[in-house]
Each structure stands twice: as structure tokens, then as C-alpha cells.
């Protein structure tokens, strides 16, 4: 049972190995805090939709399953969207259109179709958690690298904590702005992907 959990984090990491869910990974990883917010939102939607799909798998007709999955997923996405807007308005503003777009995140539909529909509730729950944490880990690492190099801070929270100054005060005046801009996102993920291939012995 436990291997379902680990699988999603390492061997079948959605972003680095399967290369799915790329849009939110790049778009909201401009800071570690934004990335973490997105990650938690995806963990919630993924686990809950896996749970419901798996629990209802015997009553969902085979040829209507995709639209039903989409409705289940969009329910949890809407909940996330409204809760985030109410309690974390700053974060909701930063993530913008990418919160409702969780609904077309291939990771979630992929796990519903590829795993939850065929497995028991506890297995589906662990699989959802594992894949969600695998996604969050990668997006958090990318967000941290981009924030540290591009702003000189780590874990700064808009309107709250001002963040750890990793390279000291002086760096804050001349950060590598490139890393926070879109090209930096592409560059960081390229190197992380190559690194994970090297480490897993694939190349």
C-alpha cells in the first residue's frame, strides 16, 4: 500500500518524469510562497477527487466516466477557489486564473482515470496524496530557486513575513531579475529535469 504513496513522489513524479501539469508549475513558481499555495490547492483537489471517484467507481458508468470525473474535479476546484479568495485574498490574486485552471490540470484527471477508477478507497487516497506531494515538492523547489536568485529572499509572504535574506541585504538591490521573469522558469525546469534524469540513471 505504501508504495502507491512513494511512487507518485519519485518514480512517477508528475512534473519531472511524466512532464504533465507544466502550466501551473511554471506560471505560479515566481516565489516559494505562491508555489506552496498552488501545491496545497492541488493536493486538496487531487486527494478529494481521487477519494470520491474511487468511492463511486461502481456506480459510474464506463462510457460516461470522463464528464463525471470533470464535474467531481470542478466541484473541488470551485471550493478551493472560493475558500482561497475569502481567506487568502493576496495569494488568490497572485495565482489568478491558475486556480480555476486546476480543473484542466492533467495530473488530476490522469490519476482519476488511471488509478482511482480501478482501485480501493485507501489506495486511491494514498495515490492522490503521493502524486500531490510529488507535484508540490517540484513546484516548491522551482519556486524557491527562482525567488532566491530573482528576489534575494526566501518564503516572503505578501503583506506578512518579509522572507529570509539568503544572500544578505546587498543582494536585494541587484537580484537576477531574469529568474522571476518567464524565461527563468523555463530555464530552471530544464536543468531540474536533466538533473533528475542523471540522478535516476536514465541518461
Amino acid at each position: 500500500m505504501f508504495r502507491h504513496f512513494v511512487n507518485g513522489i519519485l518514480k512517477e513524479n508528475p512534473v519531472l518524469v511524466l512532464a504533465i501539469g507544466l502550466c501551473p508549475t511554471l506560471a505560479v513558481s515566481t516565489s516559494a510562497y505562491n508555489a506552496l499555495g498552488m501545491g496545497v490547492a492541488v493536493i486538496f483537489v487531487l486527494t478529494m477527487s481521487n477519494l470520491i471517484v474511487s468511492a463511486a467507481r461502481k456506480v459510474i458508468p464506463q462510457n460516461l466516466r470522463i464528464p463525471i470525473f470533470i464535474i467531481i474535479i470542478s466541484t473541488f476546484v470551485t471550493i478551493t477557489d472560493y475558500v482561497m479568495k475569502a481567506y487568502l485574498p493576496e495569494l488568490a490574486k497572485n495565482l489568478g486564473v491558475f486556480v480555476p485552471l486546476i480543473v484542466v490540470n492533467c495530473i488530476i484527471l490522469g490519476r482519476a482515470e488511471g488509478f482511482a477508477y480501478k482501485h480501493s478507497v485507501p489506495a486511491a487516497l494514498l495515490d492522490g496524496l503521493g502524486s500531490g506531494i510529488g507535484f508540490t515538492l517540484v513546484i516548491f523547489i522551482i519556486g524557491s530557486i527562482r525567488e532566491i536568485l530573482g528576489a534575494g529572499t526566501w518564503m516572503s509572504i505578501p503583506g506578512g513575513f518579509e522572507g529570509f535574506k539568503v544572500f544578505g541585504e546587498g543582494f536585494l538591490n541587484y537580484p537576477v531579475l531574469f529568474m522571476i521573469l518567464p524565461p527563468g522558469g523555463f530555464l530552471v525546469i530544464a536543468f531540474l529535469m536533466a538533473l533528475s534524469r542523471k540522478l535516476t540513471g536514465e541518461a
Partner: peptide, 23 residues
């Protein structure tokens, strides 16, 4: 291309350079 960069990683680097141009 160096082996770990074959395929997707090099495509991401290309995208990065293109995004820089579009900036």
C-alpha cells in the same frame, strides 16, 4: 546535445531563449 538534456530539457532551454526574445 548532452545526454540528460536530450528531448524535453533542451526544448525547455529553447523556450527560455525564445521567451527572452519575446520580452
Amino acid at each position: 546535445i548532452p545526454k540528460p538534456f536530450k528531448g524535453l530539457p533542451i526544448a525547455f532551454i529553447l523556450a527560455s531563449l525564445m521567451a527572452l526574445a519575446f520580452l
